[in-house]
Write a protein that binds this DNA or RNA. Structure first.
Length: 570
RNA sequence: CGGGGCGUAGCUCAGCCUGGUAGAGCACACGGUUCGGGACCGUGUGGUCGGAGGUUCAAAUCCUCUCGCCCCGACCA
């Protein structure tokens, strides 16, 4: 392809609305163009990268035994009402009405449609398992789209769904998908990690996220060198170090102490000469079903995700001040578990390990010291509800955990029978009994993966594409196209490279050398071939890799062979 | 949805506080010089100052409403 005939416009300045580097570079390199918040055009160069990624994904999905199909992006409300998600999904679901006032949505995911497709055809265990995938434009009306392709509202996603007769069969497919994802990200040359994840409102039992590690990632993950990894909202730890010894004499029974106007754990601890770890942090939360008191150690944070899962709740938020006062009889900031009644109490195990603790007295300006968990109060549920911290012991090997940031590029779930049971997607087993199919679903963000690749592969001048995702592999630059010898040589090399099957982009524009070099750095194709006046006079052209920018000269006749040789090592 | 910010030429932005001829750089067009790391000189094209209403002799500038976009937070596959 010749630049002079291509639709490519690079930008010298960063767009003012781009915050993260992948967004800035994809826009500046003329690959994407924002049409509205979270909605982008993939320009020709960007679409070429997308296409390369899509081919890799498709290739690995097919190799793993999945069948490609394409479902509609507009879906009837009835299916979502059947699964129950029409009510649950909220404003993120873009709802539409047709001219007959019938309700539809623009699909944010396709569990309902695929379940319907399968239930109308598959009736026997003999037809299972089966695995289907599509690569589709989806729409989620995010509250806050941001970071370009990383969190769009409209986005490309590969989603796959598998259907099984037994958990063992699902497990087999789950492992196959996990392996396929690893091959996809390996082929993209991305540095990633697969971590245990929460299943969110998709539902299901087991779930893993594929995270590309990058400082701009929106998710925090914990990682251990033993191989354990988990999303921070899901991560568990081994027992953490106990609170320091209680300073001074231990009270024999809970004692109220005056702590006027002091509500934060840190402030009360300082006031009383205790450590934050001596405290029981008491939080009152509200779900769609009930109010609950949650207890974590004073130096810990409550994981709303973990608590939500413990309570089997869909929504969870902190209770209002008025409700807190009504439930505890005391002011906000002075809540504690002692003497509470009429509300369920969930305690983190670390709270129960405290031999002696301090906490709110459910009375304005008072705290209790000398509280013994299990003696002075009895939680209804003891469950892990704390957020893991950097340095906590790994739940598997005990080594200190590291916390890193990552971009979620893939997410695989064991759904179980949530959708099949709700929607009557059943099969007859060997004994003639009707059973709901056991399902898995497997998402992979296409645009997000591309953005993640840029986050991981760039320098101050621009993108440094990994070869498999680069829009073109070779950039041929004619430095002085108006010099006949340069023009002839570059034209011949262009023809020869194409002849040899190279994926070559020819910068034949009448621009100054500096402009061409800077554009080439910005768009970042892995290999550069420069045809200049001096070189041509000496019968030479120059090759360099975008990754190291080391120039080498080769004889003109050897240029094609050298290109192929160098590319082979990219 | 809460808090903050920004909408002026294709892009990046100044002008607004303190009302009075709409600006700069880049880009674009033409002429000339230049040509291995974002050239220079000259000439020129290009703007409903996001939109509506109001105040005023006069509004990019002040006021009200509205739309869009961005950031932080809450939310989230």
């Amino acid at each position: 392809m010749r630049w002079s005939q291509y639709f490519l416009y690079t930008l010298r300045d960063n767009p003012s609305d781009a915050e993260v580097v992948s967004h800035q570079l994809l826009v500046r390199a003329g690959m994407i163009d924002k049409l509205a918040a979270g909605i982008y055009t993939y320009l020709p160069l960007g679409w070429r990268s997308i296409d390369k990624l899509v081919r890799i994904v498709r290739d690995e999905m097919v190799a793993a035994g999945s069948c490609e199909l394409m479902m509609p992006c507009v879906q009837p409300a009835e299916l979502w009402q059947e699964s129950g998600r029409w009510q649950v999904y909220g404003k993120e679901l873009l709802r539409l009405k047709d001219r007959h006032d019938r309700e539809f949505c623009f699909g944010p995911t396709h569990e309902e449609v695929i379940t319907d497709t399968v239930r109308r055809r598959v009736t026997s265990y003999r037809q299972l398992p089966t695995n289907l995938f599509q690569i589709q434009t989806k729409f989620r009306d995010e509250i806050r789209p941001r970071f370009g392709l990383m969190r769009g509202r409209e986005f490309l996603m590969k989603d796959a769904y598998s259907f099984h007769t037994t958990p063992e069969s699902l497990d087999e497919a789950y492992r196959a998908m996990e392996a396929a994802y690893r091959r996809v990200f390996d082929r993209c040359r991305l540095s990633y990690t697969a971590v245990e994840a929460d299943t969110g409102n998709i539902g299901g039992s087991e779930s893993h996220e594929f995270m590309v590690l990058a400082e701009t990632g929106e998710d925090a993950v914990v990682a251990c060198r033993c191989g354990y990894g988990a999303n921070l909202e899901k991560a568990t730890t081994g027992p953490i170090p106990p609170a320091p010894p209680w300073p001074g004499k231990a009270p024999a029974a809970p004692e109220a102490v005056v702590t006027p106007g002091t509500t934060s754990v840190a402030d009360v601890a300082a006031l009383l000469g205790l450590a934050p770890a001596h405290f029981i942090k008491t939080m009152i939360v509200e779900t769609e079903k009930e109010f609950v008191v949650a207890l974590v150690r004073g130096d810990d944070e409550l994981s709303e995700t973990k608590l939500k899962n413990v309570l089997a709740a869909v929504h969870l938020q902190l209770a209002s001040a008025a409700k807190i006062e009504q439930l505890t009889g005391g002011a906000v900031g002075f809540s504690g578990p002692v003497g509470l009644s009429g509300v369920r109490v969930v305690a983190d195990p670390e709270v129960m390990r405290l031999s002696l603790a301090a906490t709110g007295a459910n009375r304005a300006d008072f705290h209790l010291v000398g509280v013994v968990p299990g003696r002075d109060f009895h939680p209804d549920v003891v469950a892990d509800v704390r957020v893991a911290r950097k340095g906590d012991p790994c739940p598997r090997c005990g080594a200190p955990l590291d916390v890193q940031r990552g971009i979620e590029v893939g997410h695989i779930f064991k759904l179980g029978t949530k959708y099949s049971a709700a929607m009557g997607c059943n099969f007859l087993d060997e004994t003639g009994r009707t059973q709901p199919m056991i399902m898995g679903c497997y998402g992979l963000g296409i645009g997000r993966t591309l953005a993640a690749a840029v986050e991981q592969n760039h320098d101050e001048k621009g993108i440094v594409w990994p070869r498999p995702l680069s829009p073109f592999e070779v950039e041929l630059i004619a430095l002085n196209p108006d010099v006949p010898a340069v023009r002839d040589t570059s034209e011949r090399r262009y023809a020869a490279l194409r002849q040899a099957g190279a994926d070559v982009f020819f910068d034949d524009r009448d621009e100054r050398p500096g402009v061409k070099f800077n554009d080439a750095d910005l768009i970042g194709f892995p290999l550069r071939v420069v045809v200049g006046k001096k070189g041509v006079e000496q019968g030479q052209v120059e090759l360099s890799l975008r990754s190291d920018q080391v120039r080498q000269t080769v004889r003109i006749e050897e240029a094609v062979a050298s290109v192929q040789d160098l590319l082979g090592r990219c």
